[in-house]
Design a protein around this nucleic acid. Structure first.
Lengths: 336, 336
DNA sequence: CTGTTAGCGCATTCAA
DNA sequence: TTGAATGCGCTAACAG
């Protein structure tokens, strides 16, 4: 690897300001009072040379790193990337900064974790993912960890939660209010807590109205578009009658939308469709998607806030995020 | 910030293996021969203690960092995040790792650049963005820099290029081949080289067939969905006749699709639509989008390869990426 | 208040 | 081949 042109160091500043390196460090970190005149000359030198301390050296000297490891399932996922945006935005100006490592599959996860460990990150945010809980629990013994977009048995209190049950209820109630009775549900990843909760909300809303859950109306998906598409195809080819669909997330709703279109079923005239997440793109589907909004950016920001609290020794405090129905054009009243 | 439980260091390994720290370093970095028996006991100790060197300390000692600064306009953009995926994937196993910093707006850009500088990254990949060229040129004087998704005057040779003109041609020819003559074009960001090239391709294909470019058919967009939507609305409300649209990218095509739908224009029966990029989502639009594919993942990977070559002192070699027409369901023959 | 000293964890001379 | 010594850039403990 090529050598870089040497950046100026704390010694250069010290020399130019006529003080010792420690003094420079003191004014920069405000770690102990410094005579005003010296302070001024230090600041002057810093500005003149455009000096910026090396985070690397600081980390070594301080014995802790300002890096926050962000472990994410898929950096290009439309959902997770919104959370990352929230995390990154909130980190700016805090002195902390993120190191992203993505690991969709198990092997990648091990590498990702190793990368974060090699960097000696001082804290972690886990965003979704399917790695073994044990790995995360082990990390959380060594540093502050906050989890977003999944639940981990044994460290529930560190998992940021969204009102998924309530959200599933809202979605389903909306369809019920429109007169729909045969409402299909495309679930998310099997055993995923969010998927389970949303389905639970679906069932709850149905039972509120005294409607029995028809297992034939529930199709297992995996939160990806293609599973939504296949889910609808299964429904149609099995001859299951339905006038509405509650998809476990927006991406599955997109797939469902396409499948419906291919079968000549119009949204919302023939079938009403509700998603979950309110991804930015859902404003632009044809037709625009009615969905349950969860505040992704705010969720990412909250994870950072919680982490900072933890780093300062405060007790963990994670808000539970509400969901909100956003009515657009993919739902309409049912006309038998 | 809380202290972490101390990780084991090279000294711990040295002690356990009964050798000096230098020897441990030697076997780990294979920097000079070590007697087999010692080598073995070092390796044994490393595995027993699950030792991993601190990247931070290595960076300090070596005077260079294995971190690659990745400056990106928007980490949550469906297009750029694909490139990031390619970059990240290619970096795994190279000993290098990315530090992402996003800066959509000018002020954020300055902060992003500062973050990378504070981390003393040893190289950089710039992905899109609208910051002043000068900032990038300045960086490129100090370290290897490769640019993706934009062009910078004065360092063209470091900018990875895609056959945008040819792509624009392909898209337009496809529509011409289907019999369309009134083909509208939604351009990307004003002055953006990709946008200019795609438009150039559009014009070239038209002139090949002896068709004059009608300025009324060209609407300026900005690569975002909403601009595609507004572009179509402008076209319709201005009463401009057209039977096909070539959108400067897929996101604008999405917006166009919705606008067409809202005006009761069916795709592809009434209007054919072609995008550019082939985002993963384009398989799931209603109807599935015909588009020009560019190999985003491969582009990210190529940027990394080029960077590694540069770091090893090799001359820069950037491939020019081809584009490919992907025909799906948003285009159909023109029937006057 | 401030300079000097001593590491942080590692790579890299330099001798041996 | 290998250990001891030195330093990367910075912070922190310790005198003064």
């Amino acid at each position: 690897m090529r050598e870089l042109k040497r950046q100026c160091t704390i010694h250069d500043i010290a020399r130019r300001a006529g003080v010792s390196p420690s003094t420079v460090s003191r004014v920069l970190n405000q770690t102990s009072p410094v005579r005003p005149e010296k302070r001024r000359s230090v600041i002057e030198a810093v500005e003149a040379l455009k000096y910026r301390p090396s985070i690397v050296a600081q980390g070594l000297a301080r014995g802790r790193s300002p890096a926050v490891g962000v472990l994410v399932q898929d950096i290009s996922s439309p959902f997770y990337s919104r959370i990352l945006l929230g995390i990154e935005g909130r980190l700016v100006g805090t002195g902390l900064y993120p190191i992203f490592a993505s690991g969709v599959e198990k092997r990648q996860t091990a590498q990702a974790l190793q990368l974060l460990n090699d960097n000696r990150v001082g804290s972690m945010i886990v965003v979704g993912g399917r790695m073994f809980d044990a790995d995360i629990i082990r990390m959380s013994a060594r540093m502050p960890v906050v989890v977003v977009g999944r639940a981990i048995a044994g460290m529930e209190e560190r998992c940021l939660r969204v009102e998924n049950i309530e959200g599933g209820c809202r979605a389903t109630r909306h369809l019920l209010d429109l007169g729909h009775r045969r409402i299909a549900h495309l679930t998310g990843v099997h055993n995923h807590p969010d998927a389970i909760d949303r389905r639970e909300g679906y069932a709850r809303a149905l039972s509120e109205r005294g409607i029995d859950v028809d297992p034939a109306l529930i199709v297992t998906g995996d939160f990806e578009e293609i599973s939504g598409l296949r889910g609808v195809e299964a429904l149609v080819s099995d001859g299951v009658g339905f006038s509405a669909i509650f998809a476990g997330n927006d991406q599955m709703a997109y797939g469902a939308q396409l499948a419906l279109h291919r079968h000549g079923l119009r949204v919302p005239q023939d079938v009403s469709l509700v998603g979950f997440d309110d991804l930015p793109h859902s404003t632009f589907t044809v037709p625009a998607l009615t969905t349950i909004r969860q505040p992704t950016i705010a969720i990412g920001a909250a994870a950072v806030d919680a982490l900072i609290g933890l780093l300062q020794g405060q007790p963990l405090c994670l808000p539970v995020f509400p969901t909100e129905l956003v009515v657009r054009d993919s739902t309409a009243p049912f006309f038998g």
